[in-house]
Amino acid sequence: MSIDRFFTTFFDPAMIARYWPMIIEGMALTALLAVAIIVCGGVLGLLLACLRSRRWPAINFFIVLFADFWRALPPLVPILLLYFGLPNAGLELSAFTVLWLTLSLVLAAFVEEACWAGIRAIRPGQWEAARSSGMGFVQTLCWVILPQALRIALPSLTNRAIAITKMTALGTVIGVPEILNQASSAQSFSGSATPLTLGALAYLAIFLPLVVLSRWAESRLAWKRG
């Protein structure tokens, strides 16, 4: 294939001019979804990890069950169930809601695990020092344990946030007009591969800086350790 044809196939200027607004709309929706998911899933996961550190065996059993379930299940399964199955049982959720709900629960499971690992890494003397000064369980958690535990969990939390944002592409399966959905519908209207290129570039524009940033941050952390 000549370079010329390669460019008109994947970088056709006319197609770019026609479809870039659609891709931008998709980017806005992807960003909105990402924020909604990260806020809800992050808060839920953090709360579950805090609850788990209270160490009530019965409750912890259910927290572990919850985390295992959402870490082991491919997210497309609940997405299809909620979107296609629930209406037949009399409850209709929008595609946006289904995607937001599913991915928030998936993120919550991973955040719970990361935060719990951080909490567990704090030496028991920290709890004892705080409790023996008269601080209650919640105060100790908020002012002594979490500030240290979250710092430990930060790298895996950022990785999870990036990963879950990438998963918003699953919305295309149920027609959430996020980037991938916009790009592939534009591709089928136009019969050109250029919108797909635009979509891929849009994802790169969002994630490449994050990936490079996290690589940089990790290497800095590694130096500090060494």
């Binding site: 004892e128 409790r131 023996s132 000064s133 008269g134 601080m135 209650g136």
Partner: peptide, 9 residues
């Protein structure tokens, strides 16, 4: 917790 504030450790 109320008692512990009066006991240093």
């Amino acid at each position: 917790d109320r008692v512990r504030r009066q006991i240093g450790m």
